[in-house]
Design a protein around this nucleic acid. Sequence first.
DNA 1: TTTAACTTTCAATAATTACTGAACGTTTAG
DNA 2: CTAAACGTTCAGTAATTATTGAAAGTTAAA
Lengths: 189, 189
Amino acid sequence: MNLSPKIENFVLHCGEMGSRWGFNRTIGQMVGLLVINEHPLTANQIAEALKISRGNVSMGIKELQSWQLVKVHHVPGDRKEYYAPNGTIWDLANKVFEERRKREIDPTLTLLRDQILDSANSPEEKYAQEQMQSIHDLLETVTKWSAELQRLTPEQLQSLMKLGSSVSKVIDLKDKLLKKSQITEVCHA
Amino acid sequence: MNLSPKIENFVLHCGEMGSRWGFNRTIGQMVGLLVINEHPLTANQIAEALKISRGNVSMGIKELQSWQLVKVHHVPGDRKEYYAPNGTIWDLANKVFEERRKREIDPTLTLLRDQILDSANSPEEKYAQEQMQSIHDLLETVTKWSAELQRLTPEQLQSLMKLGSSVSKVIDLKDKLLKKSQITEVCHA
DNA sequence: TTTAACTTTCAATAATTACTGAACGTTTAG
DNA sequence: CTAAACGTTCAGTAATTATTGAAAGTTAAA
């Protein structure tokens, strides 16, 4: 496993970004390495390429599996495991997005739901309740929207972007349509 | 500064989530404390409430200012600085979102743009280039979309959600409209 | 059943990140 | 000018997180 400078550069960058994306440097490098290589790699190849211990690779793969970012291949007559990205770039990004939502938003949503049920028994708590309600509403909106957007294919998103339209224009259109049921009929026809 | 159990609970939770939101535990607690209190707080009040050193508060405030999440108030005839959230919950979330985009996406986009300009000089590099192109396109799409969504007010977003419509339906509608210019005319009228 | 080729685990340790508190800087009132 | 009341900085240290490598676990061929 000797990486060309260009590829090494990319892998190192993934390492630097790793912690910002939700994992650590080594795991970031592993993702970069697997994504940039056309063929699946063995744990030993990964360890050699990144100059890290075999045990560290094992732990990293485990973590990546918990994010559902890698899948394992087997070659007949070969006991080694071969690791590859679990899907397209788009699939991986979706998985990261989803997992981060679970870690960054869901626990807070749960807490806020509980807190909001409780009644306030002082002016400060009254204000606190209101703020918690705002945060709750915000997070719920974000959650619903991210689910909507994840449902779209990259092609749908990109073609929409390329039309040069802004989302708010689309929303305005929709509002107009809703106010004119006869036109909505036509549109659905 | 004696926090009621409910409020303390919320602040501690913000601390636990802090690192997942892009800062550390203490800074997460500071955000929670400022958001949940109706009135601005002094550095000493924050230190006392969170049981941390005065110096730590100073560093935390500095960090929060770099995220543009707090603003400073002054009371005439009082030398102390009073800290408060810099905007509504929605504003704060937008700022965090924006800042994280800068840290998590922009550097990678810059790197990929450079790498893609370079020509590949081996089959591995050819594949690597293609993958980098995919990542680049994905990140650019995400960036554009997040800009679009940030332009909307919370009311616009929430009212749209409440209509029970899915984004893909809206997009389908738009496609239909584009294919029937005469109807588009009517809609714009 | 033994051995070889692999993977996983985890205690020890290295690396990184966060926090404290004392020293210093600044402003204003007396 | 001095002292009091505040904010900032940063070297030292504490806390947390990541990594190694040796030991243990697993599997399958001989």
